[in-house]
Design a protein around this nucleic acid. Structure first.
Lengths: 196, 196
DNA sequence: CTGAAAAACTAATAAGCGTTAGTTTTGTTG
DNA sequence: CAACAAAACTAACGCTTATTAGTTTTTCAG
């Protein structure tokens, strides 16, 4: 049959992972079969194992690729010397950016990480907790500087992260959306509120 | 073996659905097996079929029970004559209430509705769209009355709904949380913002 | 106590799963 | 063009799945 198409600068393994992200997003990890993944690529299922180790390895690749990207960006923002509010805004905008440009992967990492096996599950959760903690510290700094209301920092962080996750609901109408406007509206809503 | 324990005023079918909600939340619908569900109840898998029609029927029951509860409450709020902001606050508080008191069912309805089969999938999506639209109308009314900033109503609604969904992340520490404080913090954040 | 209905059981089926083994085709390099 | 490696193929394995059929046990009203 045909061969696995390789896009520029990508290995066959990367092509498989990308297709897997799309499939796992649509059907969930447990609801997806290697046979269906293979069919989408245009190949028989056992052929996939020339390039990957297992179905679970695909999920691990997707989840940790996303986690690493968020972590790397957070480190950049923490080091840039802006105010807590400005840093929070940058974090917000990066989450929105990822939701638009790496939708499938982010969605899968958000929804299917539970299906990771040990020790990957623990690793992932720890990384996630660490990320949240650093955002909480950011909010605390903002409160200490008098820029942010004296709220419970963890509640604020969770509210923001959850709100941004909701961008997945917009993806259906991907092409009819003004992403700039959406981004600015959300940033304003989450930082300045809704009430006139 | 033992029998399916029936709690007060509940049929055996309801007991199965309740256990299924807990299992589906933990492992996902596709990741859960009827054998494991039966084991949790203390019965052999085929015995379940004396009370239910199929595995999919369980998911349908959970999803539409949740949808109906939200719809009924929205109708009550719409009819109570309060201001748009007050109505929005009531909606918010009800979502938080459901997240605390019917966690498993709400979680499953939020995450596993994709696995519904036709025509249930279409029904569910339509009901969801209808719910969102009525919240959008609520925000529009608030803007017209000068109570709410002239934002994009659908963005505001989605930001709020997504933020509330994030309460699922708090359930792990269910007993160590002051839910009143959490609720008030979120309502204030989403209506009045974070900035001092 | 008897008999019927409810609810459990055991056994089995067909289908689908991830994955392995072994082989053939394809692509590339000397 | 020969040889070697990469990547596809077919066939099959052992397991799990949801579900059905048929039977036995339990529950409960008359």
């Amino acid at each position: 049959m045909s061969k696995i198409q390789v896009t520029e600068n990508g290995t066959r393994k990367q092509a498989i992972i990308q297709q897997a992200a799309g499939l796992f997003r649509q059907k969930g990890f447990a609801g997806s079969s290697m046979r269906e993944l293979a069919e989408r690529i245009g190949v028989e299922a056992p052929s996939l194992y020339n390039h990957i180790g297992s179905k679970n390895e695909l999920l691990e690749n997707i989840c940790f690729s996303v986690a690493n990207q968020f972590m790397a960006q957070l480190e950049r923002i923490e080091a840039d010397g802006f105010s807590a509010i400005q840093q929070l805004e940058q974090v917000l905008r990066f989450h929105i950016h990822m939701m638009v440009h790496a939708y499938d992967e982010v969605f899968v990492a958000n929804h299917e990480w539970k299906q990771l096996k040990q020790p990957f599950l623990s690793d992932f959760l720890q990384q996630r907790k660490n990320y949240e903690q650093r955002l909480i510290t950011m909010v605390q700094a903002g409160i200490a500087q008098g820029l942010i209301k004296p709220v419970q920092p963890q509640i604020a962080v969770l509210t923001i992260l959850s709100a941004v996750r909701g961008l997945e609901f917009w993806q259906g109408q991907k092409n009819s959306i003004h992403w700039d406007e959406l981004e600015n509206n959300m940033v304003d809503h989450l930082l300045n509120g809704l009430v006139q």
